[in-house]
Computed example of a mutant assay.
Amino acid sequence: MMRKLLAVCLGNYCRSPFAELALARRGGAAVTVRSAGLIGKWRDQPTNPSMINAARRLGFDLTLHRAQQITLKMLEWADDILAMDAAVLDTLRAVAGEPYAGKLGLYLGDRDVPDPMGRGDEVFHDCAVLIEAGTALHIGRDRP
């Protein structure tokens, strides 16, 4: 059975769009991955240009992504909901409630993926490297 993963950050503008691509690449046909943000500020907007560049440096193309806000249907769809940081996780717990508690967790397991917004290109690059490495926590290491 195919696993369904949902990566969530604040605006679906930097971290979760890249996590979606990185998880999909690592998981291949075994996973379906989506991403969303808690807020709709960047809805229908392309990914932050600095994250597009960071992704490109790692061999990923984020140019087609458009931000979307999380919906109840997305929470229902997902097998695992991966929050990029503790603040996002706390909000998801409050909004989603008990029915989804078992699906919720931090993307890096026990620590945050720092939000690179407003920082320099190297911070975005470091963030992307961290997110790509974090795919191993969710998808077996035996995958290419």
Rank of each mutant, 00 (worst) to 15 (best):
K4V: 04
K4M: 09
V8T: 10
V8D: 07
C9P: 06
G11F: 12
N12W: 03
N12Y: 06
Y13S: 12
C14G: 14
C14E: 07
P17K: 05
A19L: 05
A19Q: 05
E20D: 15
L21T: 09
L21G: 09
L23W: 01
A24F: 00
R25E: 08
R25C: 04
R26P: 00
R26S: 08
G28M: 03
A29R: 13
V31Q: 01
S35T: 02
S35P: 07
G37K: 04
G40A: 12
K41Q: 13
W42G: 11
W42Y: 13
W42P: 03
D44R: 14
Q45E: 12
P46R: 11
T47K: 07
T47W: 02
S50R: 15
S50G: 12
M51E: 03
I52G: 12
N53P: 05
A55S: 15
A55N: 15
A55D: 14
R56F: 07
R57C: 08
R57S: 13
L58Q: 06
L58A: 06
L58F: 11
G59V: 10
F60T: 06
D61T: 08
T63K: 14
H65L: 15
H65V: 10
A67C: 11
A67K: 08
A67V: 04
Q69H: 12
I70Y: 00
I70T: 02
T71K: 14
L72N: 11
L72R: 13
K73A: 12
M74H: 11
M74W: 05
M74L: 13
L75M: 11
W77T: 08
W77S: 12
A78Y: 01
D80C: 08
D80L: 07
L82G: 01
M84Q: 05
M84R: 03
D85C: 09
A86P: 09
A86F: 13
V88T: 06
L89Y: 07
L89W: 08
L89Q: 08
D90F: 11
D90T: 15
T91H: 15
V95C: 13
G97S: 12
P99W: 00
Y100F: 14
A101H: 09
A101N: 08
L104M: 07
L104T: 01
G105D: 05
L106D: 04
Y107H: 01
G109F: 02
G109K: 05
D110W: 03
R111K: 09
R111D: 00
D112K: 00
D112H: 01
V113Y: 02
P114G: 01
P114A: 07
P116M: 01
M117N: 14
G118W: 05
D121Q: 08
E122V: 04
E122F: 02
E122I: 03
E122Q: 10
F124P: 01
H125C: 02
H125I: 05
V129R: 11
V129Y: 06
L130C: 02
I131C: 03
E132P: 02
A133R: 09
A133V: 00
A133N: 09
G134E: 03
G134Q: 03
A136E: 12
H138N: 13
H138C: 07
H138P: 06
I139Y: 02
R141K: 13
D142Q: 13
D142F: 12
D142A: 14
D142E: 14
R143K: 11
P144K: 11
P144L: 10
